[in-house]
């Protein structure tokens, strides 16, 4: 069974790169450009993993994460937050909102892929 993954970011170029990366790893990839679209996609495709940008229009990453964690049938969804904000407080906030991991932009693609795989296999 193909693993599904949703990538959320308001920067089109980042979406393109991550989509390419994850497809290469054999995942079924969906994308969203803002928080609300992300929630629609989750409801629609029930992805196993969400790569979630924090600073986005409409709903930011924190809010999206909170909604995911507040919805019982989405409990198993893994969330990795990806943000250009690298301060400790912001990381702590992301984890507190229920993210499973937090990565700071710019990140190493190798590390990201490794983290994604590790988390999906642990499930």
């Amino acid at each position: 069974m193909t693993r599904t993954i949703l990538i959320v970011d308001d920067e089109p170029n980042i979406l393109i790169s991550l989509e390419f990366l994850m497809k290469r790893e054999g995942f079924q990839v969906y994308t969203a450009g803002d928080g609300e679209e992300a929630l629609e996609r989750i409801a629609q495709h029930r992805p196993e993993m969400v790569l979630l940008d924090v600073m986005m229009p409409k709903k930011n990453g924190y809010e999206v994460c909170q909604i995911i964690r507040g919805t019982p049938e989405w409990q198993d969804t893994k969330v990795i937050m990806i943000s250009a904000k690298g301060r400790d407080t912001e990381m702590a906030k992301g984890l507190a909102m229920g993210a499973n991991a937090y990565m700071t932009k710019p990140f190493s693609t190798k590390d990201l892929v490794a983290k994604v795989k590790e988390m999906l296999e642990a499930a």
């Binding site: 920067e11 170029n13 980042i14 991550l18 990366l21 250009a84 690298g86 932009k105 710019p106 990140f107």
Partner: peptide
């Protein structure tokens, strides 16, 4: 600065 850097590094 980090946002464009992210794209550059990823690609």
């Amino acid at each position: 600065l980090r946002t464009p850097l992210t794209s550059i590094r990823a690609f």
